[in-house]
């Protein structure tokens, strides 16, 4: 009967610790009896357990347990010093790059950037900057005024256009009203004329009839 060794490999340590269920333990023992591989594993494990029990614990000799603790602290100190020196170097380079000068004068202590500078030079630079700013502001104001004027002209034009359009529409309405009344008047005059004409024609017809009658009677 072939053995796949799974039982022994799975429950080897439970069997050694005597925590395996009785039925599984019996199957385990049968596997050990029948299979050489399983038996080898079991005996190897038993021997290793025996080695563990027979091993005599050795006490380590005295040694400097805090040696690397001290070394580590020293390295931290070195790191701090390195950082300080790096910061100092960076500051020095920045001072050189920006040409920073510390000048003591009558009024006390002054710091200047960008090379040799005095109070008068700084004042002239400030004055120049202020005048440039004033020119820019004046130009800006002029531009704004011109824009304002243009805006007003265009607004006036718009207003005139609107007035003219309004006037034209009023005129158009007046003309329409006038034309309507004129046409109405014409119609009424035409009707009156037609009535008069009818009246004249009727009179003429009556006159003719009368004349005919008179002529007939005269004959």
């Amino acid at each position: 009967m072939s053995c796949d060794h799974s039982l022994v490999e799975r429950y080897l340590f439970e069997y050694l610790e005597s925590t395996l269920e009785p039925s599984l333990a019996r199957a385990f023992e049968q596997s050990i009896d029948r299979c050489e591989h399983c038996r080898d594993l079991y005996h190897g494990a038993v021997n290793m357990q025996q080695m563990d029990k027979t091993w005599h614990e050795q006490t380590p000799p005295n040694w400097h347990r805090t040696a690397f603790v001290a070394r580590s602290r020293q390295s931290k100190h070195v790191n701090w010093m390195n950082r300080l020196s790096l910061a100092t170097s960076t500051l020095a380079i920045m001072l050189v790059l920006f040409r920073v000068e510390f000048i003591s004068n009558d009024s006390g202590f002054s710091v200047s950037f960008g090379g040799k500078g005095s109070q008068s030079e700084i004042a002239s630079i400030v004055e120049q900057k202020v005048s440039q700013l004033a020119e820019q502001q004046a130009e800006y104001i002029d531009t704004r005024f011109e824009n304002q004027k243009l805006d007003r002209v265009s607004e006036n034009q718009e207003m005139v256009k609107a007035l003219l359009a309004h006037n034209r529409s009023e005129r158009r309405q007046d003309m329409n009203v006038l034309m309507a009344s004129w046409l109405q008047q014409r119609d009424s005059d035409q009707q009156k004329f037609n009535k008069r004409l009818d009246y004249v024609v009727d009179n003429q017809i009556e006159n003719n009839q009368y004349l005919n009658q008179v002529l007939k009677t005269s004959h």
Binding site: E9, D40, L41, H43, G44, A45, N47, M48
Partner: peptide, 15 residues
Amino acid sequence: KTRLYAALKKLKGHL
């Protein structure tokens, strides 16, 4: 596990 069982087989012969 594989390494352990291989080791046990080897040790068994030695023992």
